[in-house]
């Protein structure tokens, strides 16, 4: 008896769960973005279209999972937080081409792939946060390796996609050899081993463990809106690096449709929704990001940080240098 009831439970688990996923009006999302960042958008989407959005979120491993699942993957939409992932998905032939006037028009040329497989949704700047103790200064990424900041720099893991993309842009600018030296000198300047999140670095500045840190733009806004973290954010200035030369490194968050998307129609609807004025505004207002759609204003807070010059380096180039960037980080033993 015991055996039978258990067996039936196992079968229940096997069949009930997936079958729940193959209902009609829905779309399945594999997301690198945290649920609380995108959930409000999905809620509006469901409200408007009646299409249910199923999300599975992970910081890591989504693309690998998609590749393993192959043609039977339930995934329709992929949301990434960085360009390299999109290009990697594209290169591994995991995406499908999307034909949509709406997407074409909403997303500027430089923020979409040439073969219409992926589209950027938002832009984020890799800023340098500096302690108010240092006053107002102009900074380049190269300055982080300056010996005068010895033991005063903090960052999250070098292997984090945001940092990897930055290193890729350095490779594009300076070549591998110089970038390695930069990494090694930067490592010398670190106040502590790379750890934690971008917010954690601002906290470290607040704690007077360091004076400079790397962090994405929107975190500043998020922290100012958080009761506890406001205290940290008030201790720092947000700097747009390299304004006197090539401009600040910019990365994107983006969306693409999985090659074997079972709900491609709904998926397209979701993609089009995400670039709509409404959604882009939400990105700007609630997520403090820079919307890609022209004509959508950034939030008041973000605009108070001022205009900035962005590095014009193409997204594809950044993605191209990704593997070399990781290898350089290993070589410099950046995280060790």
């Amino acid at each position: 008896m015991l055996k039978k009831s258990l067996l039936s439970k196992v079968l229940f688990v096997c069949f009930l769960v997936p079958s729940a996923l193959i209902q009609a009006a829905e779309v399945n999302v594999y997301s690198y973005r945290q649920p609380f960042l995108v959930k409000p958008l999905f809620d509006v989407f469901t409200q408007e279209t009646g299409i249910k959005v199923n999300v599975v979120f992970a910081k890591k491993g989504m693309a690998e999972r998609l590749a393993r699942e192959g043609e039977h993957s339930p995934a329709d939409i992929l949301l990434t937080t960085d360009i390299s992932r999109l290009v990697e998905l594209h290169d591994n032939n995991l995406l499908q081409t999307v034909q949509s006037e709406i997407l074409e028009q909403a997303v500027p040329e430089k923020f979409q792939s040439k073969d219409n497989t992926w589209y950027a949704l938002t832009m984020r700047v890799r800023n340098i946060y500096s302690s108010k103790r240092l006053g107002n200064i102009a900074l380049n990424y190269e300055d982080l390796a300056d010996p005068k900041y010895k033991a005063r720099v903090c960052t999250r893991s070098g292997k984090h996609p945001y940092n990897v993309a930055l290193v890729s842009s350095m490779i594009a600018e300076h070549g591998e050899e110089k970038t390695l030296t930069w990494l090694e000198n930067l490592k010398e300047n670190l106040a502590r081993k790379p750890q934690g999140s971008d917010r954690g670095q601002v906290q470290a500045i607040h704690q007077n463990l360091c004076d400079l840190s790397l962090g994405n733009s929107y975190y500043f806004g998020k922290m100012l809106n958080d009761e506890k973290q406001k205290v940290w954010a008030n201790e720092v200035n947000i700097n747009f690096p390299n304004q006197a030369n090539r401009g600040a490194h910019v990365n994107i968050s983006g969306v693409a449709m999985a090659k074997y998307a079972p709900n491609s129609k709904n998926a397209l609807a979701l993609m089009e929704f995400l670039v709509s004025e409404k959604a882009q505004q939400m990105y700007a207002e609630t997520n403090m990001e820079y919307p890609v759609r022209e004509g959508v204003a950034v939030s008041a807070l973000v605009s108070s940080w001022g205009q900035f010059k962005a590095d014009e380096l193409s997204l594809e180039t950044i993605a191209k240098h990704r593997k070399s960037a990781i290898k350089l980080l290993d070589k410099a033993k950046f995280d060790l």
Binding site: C14, F15, V17, P18, E69, H72, P74
Partner: peptide
């Protein structure tokens, strides 16, 4: 097609 009934579920 049943989809990923093993690897894609809580199984």
């Amino acid at each position: 097609a049943p989809g990923l009934i093993l690897s894609g579920s809580i199984f």
